[in-house]
Design a protein around this nucleic acid. Structure first.
Lengths: 347, 347
DNA sequence: GTGAAAGCGCTAACAG
DNA sequence: CTGTTAGCGCTTTCAC
């Protein structure tokens, strides 16, 4: 601002419109010599204006740099056409799902409001802010909150829980079939010839109990019951690293490991590499989620895919259903085995 | 909804308030037998109501489950007290900064609106949506957009760019001192006794040119000019992996590597481990950012810290300054060397 | 095809 | 301390 550079040709500020306080719909109407509602019709691309008017108004609006006020618009319409998402800032898989929700929501003409959960920002805070913005429905990703809390919120606004198994009849639920997923993982490794297959679990994370149980059951069924080995893990790289370290102290270490998720598997991979184990030559490792982490070119992790797009679409569908008054229901998305390069037959 | 379970004791719906269409301020006023503004005063904790009234109104509002409509409130106040953030969903460091911005903004009484940038959601879209919500200022994290584009936006609303070096007088700029950061990194490794120090750069990413130049200059100054080795990298694990692979094909490979950021370093670490190189025994590796990635317990990466809290606070400060009409300026945050466990003297 | 009037939920200014 | 009046920027009737 040292010099008044660029006195732009279109000197709209002459109209009394200043930086920070942008032009309003009334300003555009006045400048175009029409009424406010007419401008509204044009901006919404609603029927009721001649092509000529439409073009002229649009041109003038553009010149003035008019941008409609989304808040005022949503306030006036009795529906906000807004879906709120509570997600974790540091969970790559959440990022994948959020991206897909943007897409799915847009297709249905809905906007999205984001509210982050992080160490210094807890779930109630995140959800509360979405309610204050009058979202018509909430999609919560992998929250740790008690089912009771979510139930209470669901009395006020439709809630869809994603990637979390819980018994909450008032909630829409979208989740992967955890039992099927772990079954596929074990079967994949067994079919390669592995027998000592260990599982680093997700501790008390959503879905962990199911996956643990399915791991045990499948091992039994395949006659590998004696090799069952479950280690307490978690959702992060650190948990995976800890679990892997522990597994390596076994008298007879496993030849294959199924981690709770991709982050956890990443930690396990890391420990393996540092210990001098070649993956997959000496040790096979599997993740879960098929997040961006698994697709990193150099990693190319074999994993169980919870298709983010499918989960997102299901979540948005459930949200819309509930908005339209239908009863909440549960959608179980089938996982898919994605074989990449961290598994092979035991050396 | 198979069964009409839980006909909750507090049957507020009798008041005509239904699911989805929550109670309004008028409803609360009527129920409490006071006027609407009085309720407003109570909810905002503004002066002008007796303690007794305050308590009664608050109790009734709670019973009815009243939550103020943030949109209506912001619309009425001529200031929205809203700061918009455009960030990348898959960049862990952005997550760190966003979390800290929430904190810093809250201290100044500001709310935060998030808008994600992702492969399927470009920067103009993200920024546009923030403008429609009438944010009073925008904070954009590491955007690739042309300075021109941001300049144009800045004519409309104050913009603060974080972690990106560009010449744009109309923008507030917050960035780490990239030259100082890379100088510290080289000096650290040199002081440990390393001579063959390579740099996997950030290609055309913001800050990359400065870091590259500083790497070269510092190497020269320390008499290591003949060992200068810059590889084109990037922001992701894949870029780091590629760079590391290439470095390992050198006739005489480096004993230490400085990656452009922590993600990039993670890819490099991974390749090193798979190749059987022990870090830091056989090879030292440094990251940049001190994101959560570097702090993962098992990784414990030596890195150059761009303190997320400091960056966030600076960004919010600049945003507030510009909102209050001050001219945009630049804040350069000094980086800090964080020595952890991926560097040691060469074996 | 266009304009006038009313109101979304809330807060700011004043009057009592 | 409390109530009335007005209006934020937009959309929705409903006349013309």
């Amino acid at each position: 601002m040292s010099r008044p550079d660029s006195d732009a040709p279109q000197d709209v500020t002459a109209k009394g419109v200043q930086r920070g306080r942008g032009p309003t719909m009334g300003d555009v109407a006045k400048a175009a010599g029409v009424s406010r509602p007419l401008v509204s019709i044009v901006m919404r691309e609603a029927p009721g204006a001649s092509i000529a008017t439409r073009e002229r108004v649009l041109r003038i609006a553009n010149e003035m740099g008019y941008v409609p006020d989304e808040r005022a618009r949503k306030l006036r319409q009795n529906s906000s056409r807004l879906i709120g998402i509570a997600f974790e800032l540091q969970q790559p898989f959440h990022g994948d799902v959020v991206e897909q929700i943007y897409l799915a929501a847009a297709e249905s003409g809905y906007d999205v409001a984001l509210s982050a959960v992080a160490p210094t920002r807890d779930e109630p805070t995140a959800v509360e802010s979405l309610i204050r913005e009058r979202c018509e429905a909430l999609i919560v990703l992998g929250m740790k909150a008690q089912a009771d809390d979510l139930q209470r919120i669901a009395e006020r606004v439709p809630v869809v829980s994603v990637a979390r198994r819980l018994k909450a009849p008032a909630l829409g639920i979208v989740r992967g079939d955890d039992k099927a997923g772990l079954r596929m993982a074990v079967e994949h490794l067994a079919s390669l010839g592995h027998q000592r297959i260990a599982h680093i679990d997700g501790a008390d994370a959503p879905g962990s109990a199911d996956r643990r149980a399915s791991y045990r059951k499948t091992m039994q069924r395949l006659g590998l019951g004696d090799n069952i080995d479950v280690i307490t893990g978690g959702l992060t790289e650190a948990d995976g690293a800890r679990g892997m370290s522990e597994l390596l102290t076994r008298p007879v270490p496993p030849t294959a490991v199924i981690a709770f998720n991709d982050r956890c598997a990443t930690g396990a991979l890391d420990v393996a590499a540092r210990t001098g184990l070649r993956v997959p030559a000496n040790l096979s490792i599997m993740g879960y989620d098929d997040s961006r982490l698994a697709r990193v070119p150099h990693v190319q992790m074999t994993t169980v895919s919870q298709d983010a797009r499918e989960l997102a679409r299901a979540a948005v569908d459930l949200a819309l259903e509930q908005i339209h008054g239908q009863a909440p229901r549960e959608i179980i998305v089938q996982p898919r085995l994605v074989v990449r390069e961290t598994t092979q037959r035991p050396g």
